[in-house]
């Protein structure tokens, strides 16, 4: 048995526009990555799923609302239950929230306007598969580009601080408690408004996002090696 590269798929919704950027970033760190169309199926050997940024269905009704109700959603839920890793970036985060996989809501920025800039973030939790390569409390820089990124906690849904993964260093969009990214309780699903896939090379402004994908890559590698190790032990 040869160790294969971790496999990733980027879900392309009608109106996704960061799908190609996500694919580029995944391949850049070494993932065996490809697109998956919403009429198609999530591969059985996939380790990581990325829901990319963009304007699915134009965001004409509510951000992420129509995309969240696509038939592929049930496959995404199954994938999550099996422990697969999911990153929802920007519109992908909005879709995860509309699907009910992540708690809370994302509303229009307090400025009422789209905001595009590189912001400073604090890594709140480095014990997730996506943040192992960061220090706890580390300050990093990632781009944001959204009109509806103001995270609000909804009644009782964010039950503990454990879910918050990234916080803005300063207020940018009016989010509750400066929340920029959260995870589910099992920590195999990350949703965030900033764009790590846009920050993988210094040439284009920052390479802090690289470590989000490297963390996931390394996490998948080590867990599959552990599995392999266990199998070998079992055989012996």
């Amino acid at each position: 048995m040869t160790a294969s590269f971790p496999k990733a798929q980027v879900v392309v919704y009608p109106g996704s526009n960061c799908d190609r950027d996500a694919l580029w970033a995944l391949r850049y760190v070494g993932f065996d990555a490809e697109f998956v169309d919403i009429r198609s199926h999530i591969g059985s050997d996939v380790n990581l799923l990325v829901l990319p940024g963009g304007f699915s269905y134009g965001d004409y009704l509510r951000v992420g609302a129509v995309a969240a109700r696509e038939p592929i959603s049930s496959e995404i839920r199954d994938f999550m239950s099996r422990g697969g890793l999911i990153i929802g970036i920007c519109n992908g985060f909005q879709i995860l929230i509309e699907m009910g996989i992540l708690p809370g809501a994302l509303l229009q920025n307090s400025t009422g306007k789209f905001i595009c800039k590189i912001v400073e973030l604090e890594v709140v939790d480095n014990e997730t598969p996506f943040t192992r390569y960061f220090e706890r409390g580390e300050k990093i820089h990632l781009p944001i580009a959204h009109g509806f990124g103001r995270y609000v906690k909804t009644n009782g849904l964010v039950n503990s601080q454990d879910n918050v993964i990234f916080r803005y260093a300063q207020d940018v969009n009016g989010a509750d408690e400066l929340i920029a990214g959260i995870s589910n309780e099992n920590k195999n699903v990350l949703g965030l408004m900033p764009h790590p896939e846009r920050a993988i090379e210094k040439l284009i402004g920052s390479d802090d996002g690289l470590r989000v994908f490297l963390s996931a890559f390394n996490y998948i590698k080590t867990s599959s090696e552990n599995m392999l190790q266990k199998t070998k032990v079992g055989v012996a």
């Binding site: 950027d21 970033a25 595009c116 764009h195 846009r198 402004g205």
Partner: peptide
């Protein structure tokens, strides 16, 4: 003005 435009999508903007 320009911070209301997404000037980074495509990840090719070297000088913004």
């Amino acid at each position: 003005v320009f911070e209301r435009y997404d000037y980074m999508v495509g990840t090719d903007t070297v000088v913004r």
